[in-house]
Amino acid sequence: MSPHGSTGELVSDWSLLERVVRKDESALSALYDRYSGLVFSEAKRILRDTGAAEEILQDLFFQVWRTAERFDAARGSLAGWLLVAARNRAISRLRRNTGKTEDLDENGVSLRVDLESVAAQNVLLNKVRTVMGSLPEGQRQAVELAYFEGMSHTEIADKTGQPLGTVKTRIRSAMETLKQVLR
């Protein structure tokens, strides 16, 4: 199904989600087409395992199907929720062997950017890649170890041999740069 309405306009996530609540499979299909690539790529980057990433992808959209009525537009964005939930599940899975299967707070993700169209996604992909590519090596490494490897600042300091304060500053600086670019 096309993510666009009969008149060609883009159908919003929340309109599609309302239809998913009414068990409209074509609406879920549209949401899947819209976000499956982002979710799958994120999970695969974290787990480096295609099968495990596919499992997380399918479980997440199955959850959307079963519990769509629980999503609250006032609390944030569906795209943001999908990305945070995929990251949390992948990290949780990554750390299963070390026992870090803590409860993960996936609520409340406010995304102030548009990810609903392919064009918007491409613009943001380029922006984020440009930001990451322009960060000093230490900042990029610190933020990647935190986000994609699930390491705490202490673990990052241990791995990189940098003082804890330096690691914290690097992550804050990287996030601030991202904030400035996305503003």
């Binding site: 299909s29 899947y32 499956s36 690539g37 982002l38 799958f40 790529s41 994120e42 695969k44 980057r45 990433a53 596919e54 992808l57 399918q58 609390r75 944030g76 964005s77 943001g80 990305l83 945070v84 995929a86 990251r87 409340g108 993700v109 406010s110 995304l111 102030r112 950017v113 996604q121 943001l124 992909l125 984020v128 890649r129 990451m132 933020v143 990647e144 986000y147 994609f148 996030m175 991202l178 904030k179 996305l182």
Partner: peptide
């Protein structure tokens, strides 16, 4: 504030190499 910061951090996901899942998954 945390929701906004989480949203920003979530965009780090876009730094991953973009791939499509196999059609069989859908």
């Amino acid at each position: 504030k945390l929701a906004e910061e989480r949203g920003r951090a979530a965009l780090l996901a876009l730094a991953a190499t973009q791939e499509k899942p196999a059609p069989t998954i859908k």
